[in-house]
Write a protein that binds this DNA or RNA. Structure first.
Lengths: 108, 108
DNA sequence: GAACTATATGTCATATTCGACATATAGTCA
DNA sequence: TGACTATATGTCGAATATGACATATAGTTC
């Protein structure tokens, strides 16, 4: 539902309920998780290409092996910020990131 | 400098100094800031399109007017995570985000 | 199977980011 | 001018993400 439509409905006295809200949040949450997974996959790919161990990458980005593992696992405790910073440190460009983000999911 | 090249140099006994390191960090930092600016510009555009005030958008994303203002200003205290979540809440898709991220800078 | 090396998982104190609030600035309309 | 609306900026306690560390798991070589 578009925010403008929501706004109009609210003006007309509708209360947008928690079920609709819940569904909206789910869709957003899916997109958010998908985004993180794609970045983590790019990170794995880049690290492999550079033939670095997690320990070596951790050193490069001033982090720790455990956090690198969590990044690559798409752990909920890892922010997009950290993924992006790590990818940039590995030499990825903004358009590399964009490509990864918009790539279609692979066959299963 | 590629991480693999750096690694090889280090194997051969080179110490990658703080100047090189500084330059690398600057480049990464630029890309990071550029990324945030592009997302904040997309947020402004999307909010304008929906004709929402900052207060209304804040409500929609369960935040506050001041944080929305900071998001749109690319304030350092705002994470990419928050920008992304807000954009998704405004109905942007991952490929919308990707487009914004890889877009070339406008003429000045 | 012991000794390595690489990666995964759990925890924790500290650092960063958060929403909220106060307040400032700026534009509009009467 | 003063009231009103929108946006910007600064601060703060609470919430979340961080690097570090310990330890687990798994693969390899001897």
């Amino acid at each position: 539902m578009k925010a403008s439509k929501r706004k109009n409905l609210e003006k007309q006295g509708w209360k947008i309920g928690s079920v609709e809200e819940f569904m909206d949040l789910s869709a957003e949450e899916s997109a958010y998780i998908e985004l993180k997974i794609r970045l983590s996959e790019l990170l794995k790919k880049r690290r492999a290409k550079e033939k670095l161990s997690q320990v070596e990458l951790a050193k490069l980005v001033r982090s720790s092996q455990s956090r690198v593992a969590k990044m690559e696992a798409g752990d909920p405790s890892v922010s997009i910020d950290l993924l992006v910073k790590s990818l940039l440190a590995l030499g990825a460009s903004n358009s590399d990131l964009a490509k990864a983000i918009s790539s279609k999911s692979r066959a299963r």
